[in-house]
Design a binder for these strands. Structure first.
Length: 781
DNA sequence: GCCTGATTTCTACCA
DNA sequence: ACTGGTAGAAATCAGGCG
């Protein structure tokens, strides 16, 4: 019989010496099923050294089979490595756990060059080799299998052949469970060995909600209630916010301490830590929405409430917010405890809303890249690109290089023009479309087309990168060219289809998420080529790409100037010119013809303001909105007071062109600030801890604030944002910084905020217009 | 020991 | 834990000064 199913999770185990792949899915009747495939064995490759006789090397390897009993098969195969044909021995083993040991051993056999692909996980290997993707539909020939006890599925099958991809975009209807918890500690970060989980809130996408509350200090009913609820609902996806780092490890430790088993997976087992420290739950997808917070760079401090606010899930003004420092007081006070419950419920609703908003994208990214849904969020951009490449490499018989440590060497990047300071009217921004990917395609730049300096030009000829001189063969099409062409074409096709669809339809949402995922991977591909950790790293590839980029932008500027177009600014792949529709049209045509790349107007500013600084400007859009780039307004490490003032100044200057009025606005703002009419939260400065505290070489305000928090029992980790205020007193700035939640308004040094935040942010713009510091300070100060 | 300008460290941005 | 180019603040260093 045949089953069509959507792949939710994948795992494997070795039973009676036989590896089995477990495919957890949902079939077309919306039943939860498990397909077990015993028909696939793990393997790795040994390449044959140049000049060696492959057969001879193979027989040398054959002779070691006695010592390595789990070898099932040895086969000489033809593959490619960096584009060159290679002979390799495919070593098929009976157990995935022996791959690394066996490869180390066989790597020493005379005549063997490299061991490759021995560290590709068995489950990923399975997916790649069969061309099947997580969060996609597949068809498989199966027979009914007896159902091992304790599995929470409706049917178990044994695969009779490998599954095959089925063309179908829309996911099945999934059961999603969201949860969030509050732990109680008298002081400082709660410790699971000591402090109970006092509130645990759960919700389902079918609209149910529940809260489990500790009785006194006893959280046994909380955890038991959660487990019952979870097993009863039997979710496919479990979402939380910070659940990988905080909630799951906490619950696991609590459960252990209480002698409970946190059996939440579909095998009756507990969550377990997997690669990159993410938590895996067999048969379900555990998704931590915090791992997707980086996809929203507009949100500077990535708290649950800020993300929810940004996505329009829950407005901050309507929110019950309780700082973690105040949680114990709320729990201890019977009058305020209901507020804490409300807070938790709102957190939960935010989580459900964010899941709703991000889910399509997460599914599409998972299926595009091929990393399972529960992993995709935690995988860094470089690894997302890499897994995508590994799939493509398999398709063309290219062996995957091993990641290895390399020395850091810089190379030159994009070109940035000096802006012409002041306000310019009617400025068009012309952008090259996907500049770096397009260059790599046009010049066939790829690790497998690179011609090293000592080699002569191949007969097909080469493209020579300007300035740096790296050569890339014109034929055949390189690995990157093929991959990027496919990506760009895929996105175009999706976008064309989108134009025919109703934006409210499910298909539209799914495909729109798909094209965003494709775009993200395409845009990250250049960065990947210059990443030292990349398996396919080759410095000349990255270096040649940026060199061509500079060449092209330089030529574009020349052409624009020759046409009499005034260039006021440019950065990497864009130029800012006075808008002249006819000339702009001619320019993009000429650029397309002469340089082979597409350039087109991205937007036209009614007015745009530059200071002398690069990468910082502000444009007024035709609809009246401001487009602020690079300035304090959009930076996360300035107090809100500075950002608000600067935005006000920019608005007045660009809309009304009235520096005097702008100066008056600043004076008024400063008076309000000094009169303490500004909310406390607008004085908080947020900065990230980018390394362990010990490694800081100089004393800095946010690091000192972090130390104070830790002194009070709060745990902080790398990557955390520290919010602090500057207080009155003597000495260095770092001596006056205090965590915002340990300080009060009375202590705050308002003069600091005027002199070092508001005035610099305002003056940066206003001094272009001859306004001096004296003119923006209130008369009294 | 104090002042000042130069340099280093740090963060977060743009493309 | 994708790249290089860039701005800007604060800490810190280095050298002059008598």
């Amino acid at each position: 019989m045949r089953v069509t199913f959507w792949l939710l999770d994948i795992g494997y185990e070795v039973r009676d010496g036989q590896p089995e792949v477990w495919l957890w899915g949902i079939d077309e009747e919306n039943r939860r099923i498990l397909v077990i495939d015993r028909g696939f064995l793990p393997y790795f490759y040994l390449t044959i050294k140049e000049g060696e006789n492959p057969e001879a090397v193979l027989s040398r390897v054959q002779r070691l089979r006695g010592e390595l009993p789990l070898i099932r098969e040895l086969e000489l195969v033809d593959r490619r490595f960096f584009g060159r044909p290679v002979k390799a021995i495919k070593v098929v083993c009976g157990n995935p756990e022996v791959l690394s040991k066996y490869s180390r051993k066989l790597g020493k056999v005379p005549g063997v060059g490299m061991c490759l692909e021995e560290n590709i996980r068995y489950s990923m290997r399975y997916l790649i080799d069969h061309g099947i993707t997580p969060c996609g539909w597949h068809e498989v020939e199966v027979e009914k299998a007896e159902r091992p006890s304790g599995l929470q599925v409706e049917a178990v099958y044994r695969a009779r052949s490998p599954p095959k991809d089925v063309e179908k975009a829309e996911p099945p209807s999934l059961r999603v469970l969201g949860f969030t918890m509050v732990a109680y500690s008298r002081r400082g970060t709660p410790k699971p060995e000591r402090d109970p989980v006092v509130i645990l809130s759960v919700a389902t996408n079918s609209g149910k909600e529940a809260q489990f509350v500790a009785e006194g200090g006893d959280d046994r009913p909380v955890i038991e209630g959660f487990l019952r609820y979870l097993r009863e609902f039997d979710p496919d996806v479990i979402v939380g916010y910070g659940s990988n780092q905080r909630d799951w490890p906490y619950l696991l430790t609590r459960a252990r301490g209480l002698g409970l088993r946190l059996s939440v997976d579909r095998e009756g087992g507990e969550p377990h830590t997997s690669v990159y420290g993410h938590i895996s739950i067999a048969g379900r997808a555990n998704v931590d929405l915090y791992d997707f917070a980086d996809e929203l760079p507009e949100v500077k401090v990535k708290t649950l409430e800020n993300i929810a606010e940004f996505l329009g899930v829950m407005r901050l003004e309507e929110r019950t917010l309780i700082d973690e420092v105040d949680i114990p007081a709320y729990w201890e006070d019977p009058d305020r405890r209901p507020l804490l419950l409300k807070f938790s419920l709102e957190n939960l609703r935010s989580i459900m809303g964010i899941a709703e908003a991000m889910f399509d994208y997460a599914l599409q990214l998972s299926s595009l890249v091929g990393i399972p849904l529960d992993h995709i969020g935690t995988a860094a951009v470089g690894f997302r690109v890499e897994w995508f490449l590994i799939r493509e490499a398999y398709r063309i018989g290219e062996l995957v290089p091993t990641r290895r440590p390399r020395p850091y060497r810089t190379y030159v990047g994009g070109m940035v023009l000096k802006p012409r300071p002041g306000i310019h009217e009617e400025i068009a921004v012309l952008d090259f479309k996907s500049m770096y990917p397009s260059i790599m395609i046009a010049k066939n730049i790829s690790p497998d087309t690179y011609v090293p300096p000592e080699e002569p030009d191949p007969p097909c000829g080469v493209y020579v990168a300007p300035e740096v001189g790296h050569r890339f063969r014109k034929e055949p099409p390189g690995f990157y060219k093929e991959v990027l062409t496919r990506l760009l074409r895929a996105r175009e096709e999706i976008r064309e289809r989108l134009r025919t669809l109703d934006p409210e339809s499910v298909e539209y949402r799914v495909l729109d998420a798909r094209q965003r995922a494709v775009k993200v991977i395409t845009n990250a591909s250049y960065g990947y080529t210059g990443w030292l950790g990349a398996r396919w790293y080759l410095k000349p590839v990255a270096e040649a790409t940026t060199a061509w980029g500079r060449h092209i932008i330089r030529n574009t500027i020349e052409m624009a100037k020759k046409m009499g177009l005034e260039v006021v600014y440019g950065d990497t792949d864009s130029i800012f010119i006075r808008y002249d529709p006819e000339k702009v049209e001619r320019l993009s045509k000429a650029v397309g013809e002469e340089l082979g790349l597409e350039i087109k107007p991205d937007k036209v500013y009614v007015r745009v303001l530059f200071t002398e600084a690069k990468k910082r400007y502000c444009g007024l859009l035709p609809d009246g909105r401001l487009d602020v780039v690079g300035m304090e307004v959009i930076r996360g490490d300035w107090a809100a007071v500075a950002k608000e003032v600067q935005e006000g100044v920019l608005g007045i200057l660009l809309r009304e062109k009235d520096p005097k009025k702008a100066a008056g606005f600043v004076r008024g703002y400063v008076s309000d600030l000094l009169a303490r009419r500004t909310p406390y939260r607008d004085l908080i400065i947020w900065k990230t801890l980018t390394k362990p505290l010990k490694e800081y070489k100089v004393r800095a305000a946010h690091v000192e604030a972090a130390r104070m928090l830790m002194q009070e029992g709060w745990e902080l980790t790398l990557g955390d944002k520290v919010g602090y205020v500057i207080t009155k007193g003597e000495g260095k700035l770092y001596e006056r910084a205090k965590p915002y939640n340990l300080a009060s308004y009375d202590e705050v040094d308002l003069d600091y905020y005027v002199e070092k935040q508001v005035i610099p942010a305002a003056l940066r713009i206003l001094k272009q217009f001859g306004v001096t510091e004296r003119e923006i300070l209130p008369p009294t100060s």
